[in-house]
Amino acid sequence: MVIQMSDEKTHPPLQKFNRPLLLLNLAVPGFSLGGALLAIIFSREGSLIDVRIFAIGCVIGSLILAYLAWIRPQKDIVALSTPIYSFLFFVAPSDVSVTIFLELLYAVSLTILLIRLNLRFGEAPESGRSGETVLKDPLKSYCETVRGNGGEISHEVAHFAAVVFARFAQGEYLAAVSVADAATADIEGNSTFPALKTAFCIVREHAILLEESAGQPDAFLEFSTPDAGALAKPLPPQNKINDRFEVSLENALLLLFAAAWNGSEKDRLLLLNGQSFAQKLMQ
């Protein structure tokens, strides 16, 4: 068995913030460092105000940081748990000088955690919610390409494509096989989009292999060169048999996703549940 190592993990680039996200990102150091600075200023001037009240800035800052961590698809447990620490640090009363020192350290820590969150935990969705509600690039662009290139497909076939994709994503390989059989019977003789039939057959073949926990066979179904225009990934060279086997399945699943997205609006919710899987296949 020859198993190659995966590519080294790459960090996502710094995101471009939209306005609400930018304000939230600025609010973290703003509230936490601002609270600490106000505490220092008021304590130096000998004000009668209990400067420990400014610790609330750190509590607010950590709540915003936790929210920014929560809305990301990839969660940062450290940022998510900062509100707990903020309450532990500041709710229990302590000496004024100790509180100010802790506030300052905590505010700097929150700022470092915010930078780490943006560097290492991907982009926050623009909608500000973690649920998948819209199709995102590059999958969206691919679906549009397929809409432009592909032939007419019936709602029924598009629905079959959605179900096969969903069952395969769920690891229900036997169910995927039976639906793929029904789909290929339904599109028999429909030559307007031959790549779609090939896609059903490829997914069916892989589903059988996975159900039986069988390895890669010597001969397997693949897309032909004329199908390449409708595929998400280029066909690998002939000598790279392992790549050809894997890319065939990825292209087939993505083509089913795109066909289903374009042809069956009622299945879009089902497809959105599998969007993260499809996006992973696009990589």
């Binding site: 190592m5 994503a169 769920q170 899987f277």
Partner: peptide, 26 residues
Amino acid sequence: EAKTVRVKLVNENMIGKPVRIQGVLE
């Protein structure tokens, strides 16, 4: 019960499924 799958096929729709993977311990 576990099906042998490639790492890329493991996704959030498979939560709760028994799987078998083979690979290099990095």
